[in-house]
Amino acid sequence: MSNIFFWAMMVLVIVSGALFAPEHAGLAIHPMDQFEVRPLFGHGDIGVFTPTNVTLWMALAVLGVIGLLVLGTRRRSVVPGRAQSVAELVYGFVYRMVEDVAGKDAVKFFPYIMTLFLFILFANVLGLIPMSFTTTSHIAVTAVLAALVFVTVTVVGFVKNGAGFLGLFWVSSAPLPLRPVLAVIELISYFVRPVSHSIRLAGNVMAGHAVLKVFAGFAGALGVFAFLPVFAITAVYALEVLVAFIQAYVFTILTCVYLKDALHPSH
């Protein structure tokens, strides 16, 4: 059955490749065009408040969050339906993550972490729709997300522990002569955190989308043999779906880890 389906798709791809092959086959690869920020209306300059494609796709992410977590749970059933099950699954997943990784007293940050997780997840997944715009592929967006986490963690660390938060950099389990060296390393790693935190997300998303576009460009150039890059695109797309979820998860769990450092700075 699936075998028949496979061959039918194969034939379809090859036939459509033959039919729709461009007359002037040539490489037309513009992998970065998809990341362009454009005004939604007209072609004017982009000011701070200009509605752009960023606005559109972030708004769609908000709608996605509302659709899943608000509309999906509107019946408040004790025996949940499909949407409510997924909403509860996401809730339980992030809640347990916060509780297990950052500790019981981090639960009051749960709405904040849930916001980050859902925004990144929906931005990543919506970005996989062909012709869409991926807001999380922009370093400006992920840098703000990471900076928010960094500032929150640092402020919480000092408010909760006072100067004791500096104990995070003083590795008391190491031999005494090594401690100043380790303190410098810990300090550097602490300030590198937001950089890696933001570039990991934007880099992964951007690279995957660019690869898809590059393969798409090959498909345009290969004519009848376009089915080869099309299969490659299918495989990469599947990988990208995985990456969309994993990067949201990684960003969130790292946030929890950093938060744990702020709440319990002793090693």
């Binding site: 752009t52 992410a61 908000v62 916001t115 703000v144």
Partner: peptide, 25 residues
């Protein structure tokens, strides 16, 4: 384009946070 992106991101996060903490969660 950075100020634009940052502005809309903060709006988006604020809206999602509001929805989550007031209604959904």
């Amino acid at each position: 384009t950075f100020p634009n992106q940052v502005f809309w991101l903060l709006v988006t996060l604020a809206v999602i946070y509001f929805i989550l903490s007031r209604v959904a969660l």
